[in-house]
């Protein structure tokens, strides 16, 4: 059975993570799934929304559930690169400088409110994301594997933000928006326990070895020629249509494909379907597309338009 295999795979650790995270962040199962797909596709995740909708809670919950060691960096306007990377301190006993690794030396980094920091501090983090290593005081140090950054940011029109440049946005595989919870979920939230307590009670749902294995399984998900045709048709449309300021890059196409593979695997399929591409597309290309013309549509809308504009070949 190809289509409804999820039921049979229910006890899988991925489903477990999703189920447990859903108990903390109410009514946001789809976003949790997307975040999970992003991690399985080995991409960094950017969560963007107004304060107070649960960005930090989501990222916090995920790091606990994945059983990885994690650090949280609160980005502020006076944050320095050394606060991220670490610093060498003179050791009196040995009369040498000793490197004290910064919070970046862990498997999951929660970069909270990344656009509140100065570009200098942002780039310290973003360089590490790209290269999986940091250079401090002339010495290059590798970062642990797996290594993820889950960054949260406030919408750009908020006061006191430094927008991430497009080249750095491109380093995030996905950008998610949480949005307000619906009335039912909100009621439950208001009645329920303190979220912080819930998170501290969370137990890891998988080991880091399991995670690496799942990531490997993602790349083995079958991608047919027909599906590649579809991905290329989508990308070509953004390049030819005057509705977009700039077409999608090959890196973006690759990102769509990887995320769709992860999504397909989470659906319990061994092959990727157009639906998988459609499921991840707004999250993957939303921060890479800009509409032109009067509408100046934001990325999410532009991506949704793209889906309806391109026929499945």
């Amino acid at each position: 059975m190809l289509i409804d295999a999820r039921a049979r795979l229910a006890p899988s650790p991925v489903e477990d993570v999703v189920a447990r995270a859903s108990r903390v962040i109410l009514g946001k199962e789809r976003q949790i799934r997307l975040a999970m797909a992003c991690i399985l596709a080995r991409g960094h995740l950017l969560i963007e929304d107004v304060p107070g909708v649960g960005k930090t809670t989501l990222s916090h919950a995920l790091s606990r559930l994945l059983g990885l060691d994690y650090q949280r960096i609160q980005f502020t306007s006076d944050l320095l690169p050394a606060d991220v990377i670490g610093v060498s301190i003179f050791d009196r006993e040995n009369s040498t400088f000793r490197f004290h690794p910064g919070p970046i030396f862990s498997q999951i980094i929660l970069a909270d409110e990344i656009n509140r920091a100065s570009p200098k501090a942002q780039s310290a983090l973003l360089e590490a994301m790209e290269e999986h290593q940091v250079t401090a005081e002339g010495e290059t140090r590798p970062l642990p594997e797996p290594f993820f950054v889950i960054a949260t940011q406030n919408p750009l029109h908020q006061v006191g933000t430094f927008p991430l440049p497009e080249s750095q946005l491109d380093r995030f595989l996905m950008r998610l928006r949480l949005g307000y919870p619906d009335a039912k979920a909100e009621r439950e939230l208001l009645k329920g326990e303190e979220r912080r307590d819930l998170i501290s009670q969370l137990e890891p749902a998988m080991s880091s070895a399991q995670l690496v294995e799942l990531q490997r399984a993602v790349t083995a998900t079958q991608v047919s020629e027909a599906l590649l045709d579809y991905v290329q048709a989508l990308v070509a449309h953004t390049r030819l249509s005057p509705k977009y300021a700039q077409g999608l890059s090959p890196r973006a196409a690759l990102a769509v494909l990887r995320a769709a593979q992860a999504w397909a695997m989470m659906q319990g399929r061994r092959q990727v379907l157009p639906e998988d591409v459609q499921a991840v597309l707004p999250a993957v290309v939303g921060h890479r597309l800009h509409g032109t013309g009067e509408s100046q549509k934001g990325g999410f809308d532009a991506a949704t338009d793209l889906l309806t504009a391109v026929a499945i070949p």
């Binding site: 059975m1 190809l2 289509i3 079958q222 027909a226 990727v272 157009p274």
Partner: peptide, 13 residues
């Protein structure tokens, strides 16, 4: 029909 089509088009053929 859909399952067979999916296998033919997106799966092993």
């Amino acid at each position: 029909i859909t399952e067979r089509y999916v296998r033919g088009r997106y799966g092993e053929g």
